[in-house]
Simulated assay, not measured.
Amino acid sequence: MLPILITFAYLIGSISTAIIVCKLLNLPDPRTQGSNNPGATNVLRIGGKKAAVITLIGDGIKGAIPVLIAQAMGGDLLTMTLVALAAFLGHVYPIFFGFKGGKGVSTFIGVLLATNYLVGLSFMIIWIFIAKVLKISSISALTATLLTPIIFYFLSNKDLNATYVITLTCAWIFFTHKSNIQRILTGDEGSIKS
């Protein structure tokens, strides 16, 4: 059953909310504008708050659905985190869009909320707090990502195997943000426009 769940999670993760939303709202393809990244932050740049919120929610839902299905089928926490990783990888490497996807933060929030809603809420609180203070989306996301494995470990009854999978996913988020990290280090990273 796990291989089927993982395959399903990857396929639903591969649906690019950003590309679909931009097409429906007659906006430019997010892969060709702004940061060229099909994610909520870039959609905010090119299409405004409404389009970005729809993208954020859509990416979160596509991460949550397979995890909730795994849970409903009696999957343990390790199974849920493996399914979560598959949905995340679908977003980052979508089979429907030439394996070139977003950076995965919105989908990661969705899988966290479905796996353990307290961990997901913690991620969002940290993200919002840092964003309000520093006004830089990538630093907010990376700070929340860095703290997530620790929070997850203690809120999951210290399930080490599941925490390993969450940690791997978090490491992947840092990898997808490597260009952002370079810009942060050089002081060139763009700020969030209010």
Rank of each mutant, 00 (worst) to 15 (best):
W172G: 10
A9K: 03
S138N: 05
F123G: 03
I20S: 06
S122N: 03
Q71Y: 11
G187S: 09
A162T: 04
G60W: 12
R45F: 08
I192N: 03
S179N: 15
L68P: 01
A87T: 00
E189L: 01
V67A: 08
M1R: 09
T148K: 07
K23L: 04
Q33V: 13
M73W: 12
I136V: 14
N116F: 01
N157A: 14
L185I: 05
T145I: 05
H91Q: 14
A114V: 00
I130A: 01
K135V: 06
P66N: 13
L113M: 14
Q33F: 14
K178E: 05
S194R: 09
C22K: 00
F129D: 00
F129C: 08
V133T: 13
T143I: 14
K103I: 00
V111K: 03
T7M: 13
I69A: 13
S16L: 10
L121P: 01
F8D: 04
A72K: 13
H177G: 00
M1L: 12
I130E: 02
F154A: 03
V67C: 10
A40Y: 07
F96G: 02
F152P: 00
K100P: 01
T115W: 03
I173K: 02
R31Q: 08
Y93K: 13
D59M: 12
L11D: 04
K50I: 09
K178F: 14
T107L: 11
G110C: 04
G39A: 06
F174Q: 08
K158W: 13
N116T: 01
S194D: 10
P94L: 14
F88W: 11
N42P: 05
D159Q: 15
W127Q: 06
F129N: 02
Q71T: 13
P94D: 07
T163W: 07
I19P: 05
T176L: 10
S191G: 15
F99N: 04
T55G: 10
F129P: 00
T32W: 10
G74I: 06
